[in-house]
């Protein structure tokens, strides 16, 4: 199994930490991981993205141009990375802010109103975990328990009271993607 993922959105939406959490969870499960962030001028006010690769084998190039999955959080990233998902691939996107999704018919596209759902959960910062949950429901590359395990290691102890909220967000995402139809 090798899964090549692009996660992209505005800085501050938790794009980089989604990739890191996913990476850490895969490592917990014994897989190889590379996580390659954009760190250029676009980080300062514009878009942020990270390429995350998970594999049962050793990973050669951390830089790739086409992806199995895109987790997309803003319109510019949809326009940029929509065409770069492999045929038969997957896009999970934040549909509260993205109005024009890719119109490709050769990939699966799921609209997840994550920001709205996060609002209802009274924590707007949790939208990224809702999207991650949705993605993992469609492609269970790592277990939800491994994600929580990863968060335990990544988050300082003073934030551990938020673990439950994160679990609920992941479960919310899983629930949402089951209720929306693709494309």
């Amino acid at each position: 199994m090798t899964e090549e993922i692009i996660i992209a959105g505005f800085g501050g939406q938790g794009v980089l930490s989604m990739g890191q959490t996913l990476g850490y969870a895969s490592m917990v499960e014994g897989k190889s991981v590379t996580w390659m962030p954009s760190y250029g001028p676009e980080m300062r006010g514009g878009t942020a993205n990270c390429i995350t690769i998970l594999s049962d084998e050793e990973i050669s190039s951390p830089i790739i141009s086409v992806f199995d999955t895109g987790i997309i959080l803003n319109q510019p990233s949809m326009d940029k990375f929509g065409p770069k998902v492999k045929k038969g691939g997957l896009i999970v996107y934040e549909s509260t802010t993205i109005l024009h999704a890719s119109d490709r018919k050769d990939i699966e596209i799921y609209a997840i109103p994550a920001a709205e759902a996060a609002n209802q959960m009274k924590n707007t910062k949790i939208a990224n975990m809702i999207l991650l949950g949705a993605y993992l429901e469609r492609k269970p590359v790592v277990g939800i328990d491994s994600i929580i395990e990863a968060l335990k290691k990544v988050l300082p102890e003073r934030y551990h009271h938020l673990l439950e909220l994160n679990r609920n967000a992941l479960l919310k995402g899983q629930e949402l993607i089951r209720s929306v139809s693709k494309n």
Binding site: Q20, V33, T34, W35, M36, P37, P62, I63
Partner: peptide, 10 residues
């Protein structure tokens, strides 16, 4: 280089 410095791996 910047990429090896910035990227995360096991």
């Amino acid at each position: 280089d910047g990429a090896i410095g910035q990227m995360m791996e096991k």
